[in-house]
Computed example of a mutant assay.
Amino acid sequence: MRHHLILRVVTKLLIGSIMIFALYVQFHGDYSPGGGFQAGVIMAVGFIIYGVVFSLEDVQRVFPPWLVHKLAALGVLLYAGTGIVSLFLGYSYLDYTALSPHHPVHGQHYGIILVELGVGITVTGVMVTIYYAFTSRTPIMDDEAW
Results as ranks from 00 to 15, higher is better:
Pro101Leu: 01
Tyr79Gly: 01
Leu71Cys: 08
Ser55Ile: 09
His109Gln: 13
Val68Ser: 07
Ala22Ile: 07
Leu56Asp: 10
Val105Arg: 08
Gly35Leu: 06
Ser86Ile: 03
Gly81His: 08
Val59Lys: 02
Gly90Tyr: 04
Ala44Met: 09
Thr97Tyr: 01
Ala73Glu: 13
His106Leu: 13
Ile84Val: 15
Asp58His: 12
Leu23Ile: 12
Gly75Leu: 08
Leu23Met: 14
Ile42Val: 15
Pro101Phe: 01
Ala72His: 04
Leu99Lys: 00
Tyr24Asp: 11
Ile84Asp: 08
Tyr91Cys: 01
Phe27Trp: 13
Asp95Glu: 15
Val52Asn: 11
His109Pro: 01
Tyr91Pro: 02
Val52Ala: 09
Ile42Leu: 13
Val76Tyr: 08
Met43Gln: 09
Phe21Tyr: 14
Leu99Val: 02
Gly34Ile: 06
Tyr79Phe: 15
Tyr50Thr: 08
His103Cys: 07
Val53Glu: 08
Val62Arg: 11
Pro65Ala: 10
Phe54Tyr: 15
Tyr96Gly: 03
Ser86Gly: 11
Ala39Asn: 07
Gly35Gln: 09
Phe21Trp: 10
Phe21Glu: 09
Thr82Lys: 03
Gln60Pro: 05
Gly40Phe: 00
Gly107Ile: 01
Tyr93His: 05
His103Ile: 14
Leu77Asp: 08
Leu23Lys: 03
Phe27Pro: 05
